[in-house]
Design a protein around this nucleic acid. Sequence first.
DNA 1: AGGTTGATTGACAGCGCTGCCATTTACAGC
DNA 2: GCTGTAAATGGCAGCGCTGTCAATCAACCT
Lengths: 370, 370
Amino acid sequence: MKAAPPTGEAAQAPTIYEVAAKAGVSIKTVSRVLNGEPNVRPAVQQRVRAAVAELGYRPKMSARGLAGGRSYTLVTFLDEGLTMDHWRIGRSNPYVERLQFAGMLQCRKAGYHLLVELLDPASPRVEQWIQSTLAALNPDGVILTPPISEDKKIISLLERFGAPFARLSAIPSDAACLTISMDETAAAAEATNHLIDLGHTRVGFISGGPGFGSSALREQGYRSALAARGIPIEKRLMADGGFTFEGGKQAAAILLKDKNPPTAIFASNDEMALGAIHEATRRGLAVPRDLSIIGFDDFPAAQYSIPPLTSMRQPIDSMGVLAVQRLIENAAKQRGAPMPKDRAVVPHALVVRASTCPPPRTAAKRATKA
Amino acid sequence: MKAAPPTGEAAQAPTIYEVAAKAGVSIKTVSRVLNGEPNVRPAVQQRVRAAVAELGYRPKMSARGLAGGRSYTLVTFLDEGLTMDHWRIGRSNPYVERLQFAGMLQCRKAGYHLLVELLDPASPRVEQWIQSTLAALNPDGVILTPPISEDKKIISLLERFGAPFARLSAIPSDAACLTISMDETAAAAEATNHLIDLGHTRVGFISGGPGFGSSALREQGYRSALAARGIPIEKRLMADGGFTFEGGKQAAAILLKDKNPPTAIFASNDEMALGAIHEATRRGLAVPRDLSIIGFDDFPAAQYSIPPLTSMRQPIDSMGVLAVQRLIENAAKQRGAPMPKDRAVVPHALVVRASTCPPPRTAAKRATKA
DNA sequence: AGGTTGATTGACAGCGCTGCCATTTACAGC
DNA sequence: GCTGTAAATGGCAGCGCTGTCAATCAACCT
């Protein structure tokens, strides 16, 4: 009487017409209830919900996307080169894994879906690629992971295309987007202080590669912590590890073969810290007895290393959840509108495990093999 | 002249109408070219492709999905409980990670997208949940991972709903679907033989939990290998590790505290093998000198353990690629039709690293602490 | 040359939903 | 009781594509 299904056949999956018929309302009212729009009497809402439940109805994503402009989809862009490298050598990428999963769980709560795409910022056709990808997927929001989250070109492209996006672990810029990160500098300083508090004065530092904004920030934290304690900053106590396990190993090798090696090393991510432990162990140094090592990020692997790694936690899960939340909120509020410039700082925390302790009494006692 | 965009305004993203106008053909012809349908003159194809390239056009997924019934989307179902457990304790799940990534890469090639969903087989509303999820997403195919791939109920549900699906690492059933796996039994036998060939006669076995079809198969391979060599099968040389690190540790503890402990252990997955190494080391046993340990799966972590783990490779990447390929082929051939019952076996391979070697001369020489 | 077949193309109707606008209904206020 | 206003609904036109089927065109027969 109110509305009839256009198809006279028993459909495989129920459509909004069936629900409307069963509830005795128009499809538009069903739509209202489903989308939480106001001005539907409680009694009617109940009837609709009952019909929905009975039919096991769920609106078809593609139909919603086509009609409403909202795709109920969020996309995460990963750096193609970085990801493929990880992939080839069979290393997992905890950052991506945690982020993706946390994001997915959060999306689920809102009936959203999270897609993952690889993006090669160096490709000559990035612009075209981004445009067509956005067109095809029509995502309600985009999540940028490092190092892409720091890429000026990508950022301005996304801005130009008017896509709401969030940048993770990045230095705030004045782009119209949400930037989510921890206070890298403060956290790095705290990590360094942990070592100093333990009694170390020769504290080595392994930095990450350029291209990652956090790299510079963490180094700055290290420097400022030393400076604040009146400890001189020595170039020979610093080496680059490019944020990789191998790089960390090599950097540690350089630091440790010095005539006057550090008694503690702050590696600016866990992978490098693990590499450093590996290298130290290989050289016959006991960690932490002979050499304390602290990492950064507190990736899952940190708790299972030997010895378990002391690290500064970067709350990736929270960042993922927050990004998803805000992106969805934005989409719900004003479809298609870019996300207003904003900044969110998530709290970090020192996680003390077994890879750090006070320095050995006599530094000379250590036996350092070539 | 042939076709005009229905909207008189400059759209944000180009639609098929713009392309058609620019190429001077009807939208249907553009559609044909884009979908590789036959019967379009080469000259016309070229014009269309040029227009597509110039505009950076890509068909909108939702429109395609709505109109054609194909969503260009594949869904992977993960076991909710298992996944959440991994998640909470901060362990990564290499199986899922590799599968998902390999699948994603393969999807990309065909313009497809891979979604990941959590499914709780124990929920009283699974049926409803699956139905509505399939309705909402309308995926062109579903990938089932263990232990869900073994779940009778889920399988029959999927069959009933007519969704084409692939089961990974599962024992073939007579459901209308593709079953992809390695020859678990043969592989397990080969792993066992590797140990026997090395000279071991007391070979322990750590089994996985029930619910995983591969668990029984691997144990069978172990048994048959021993039998084939005339080595008696002893209950005390076997323990259950539930496919987890902790379980592997505990199982190893049980095996090693025996009066006449094994000189080698075959753990039926890498996680347990790593746990076994951990336990052995904790007890003062050197791996592999005092105790050889072989794993199964050859997960990425195997190559980074200390010592690097000898393992039997399960080609998860290939399985993911294959599943995606076949599912897409099926969708292209006959939209909506269930996948014909089929079986694919992917090749395994022994990867010898440093955790296995001949047994010690005198077993009594070993010092086994409680 | 007329007819026939098959290749090539276009017209058009939806797919299932939401946005916009019209309509109806419910309550105030006077 | 009668407008005025806001709350509740319904009607309907698409969103951008693909499927179906009809129309056109070219080459091939007899």
